[in-house]
Amino acid sequence: MDIALFSPSSLFPEDDDSSSPDETTETQQSYVERSHEFPGMELLIREFSFHQLNANLLWPGTFAFAEWLVQHRSSIEGRRCIELGSGTGALAIYLRKLFCVDITTSDYDDQEIEENIAHNCRANGITPVLPHLKHTWGDTFPAADPDWDLIIASDILLSAEVRLPRPAFLMSWRRRIGKEDESLFFTGCADAGLEAEHIGSRVYCIKPRHSAVLETI
């Protein structure tokens, strides 16, 4: 499994900007193209050498989630999915090719990210490219009447006993956030009428508070 290596410090902006006034802040984007082994499939994925919005990496959780879905394909077959934080689009491309799943990619409102996902779709034989939704969290959601019934994000590990409602949002919560910010997130969920159910090791299913369970995985 070919996973990009990175420095944790690259995930955060530098406090001390020592650039001289004569230095330009705009540089031509550079890429690294790698072959990645997914279960039963090899994908050629172009990644940014660096991206200020941290959309340049394939996280290890992407491969773990792909392996789980191969074993529990009923969790995604027949769903209308949107992936938040698609980055390079690798996971969505894999799910489209393996399961022919109806999936939309999504990430920051950033043209480079959208163009790179489209490039990776074409590089792996997906034409037309996957639908993409540009959305920076905190901004007004651009889809007025969304019809997705499953929201996914990579870095997810689940157990076979989990019962998923429709709609559902599956997420893991593992890194780069403090306890105080974590508490604010879950308090915000409760205030919005959502229930966050702890279903595994730092894994949560977020759903409307009185959502009916319609299927068992």
Results as ranks from 00 to 15, higher is better:
E77V: 15
I45G: 03
V70W: 00
T25P: 05
F63D: 02
S18C: 14
R79C: 04
I82F: 00
G85D: 00
R73H: 15
G78M: 04
E26K: 13
S19N: 14
R46C: 07
D22L: 15
R79P: 03
V32H: 10
N56W: 05
T24K: 11
E42D: 12
P39M: 08
S20H: 15
S75V: 13
C81V: 15
G78I: 05
Y31K: 08
Q28P: 05
H36T: 11
Q29N: 00
W68V: 03
H51P: 01
R80I: 04
M41R: 14
A64K: 09
L58E: 01
T88M: 08
S30I: 11
D15W: 00
F48D: 01
D15K: 11
F38T: 04
T24V: 10
E26I: 12
L84K: 05
Q52L: 10
G87P: 02
S30Q: 15
H51C: 03
S86A: 12
E67Y: 06
L69Q: 01
V32A: 09
I76E: 01
L44G: 00
D15E: 15
A55H: 08
T62R: 02
L84P: 06
T27P: 07
H51D: 06
Q52C: 10
I45F: 07
E23C: 09
Q52M: 13
P60K: 12
S20I: 13
E33L: 08
P39D: 05
C81E: 05
S19C: 14
H51A: 04
P39H: 07
T88Y: 04
L58A: 01
L58N: 03
D22P: 03
L57F: 11
S35N: 11
S19D: 15
E23Q: 14
R34S: 08
P21Y: 13
F50K: 14
H51I: 02
E67N: 08
Q71E: 14
M41A: 05
G87M: 01
G85N: 02
H72C: 06
S49Q: 15
P60G: 09
Y31E: 04
D16G: 06
S20P: 00
S35Q: 12
G61R: 08
G87N: 04
R80E: 05
E83Y: 06
L57W: 06
R34T: 13
F38D: 01
E37R: 14
T25C: 10
H72E: 07
G78W: 04
I76S: 03
E67K: 10
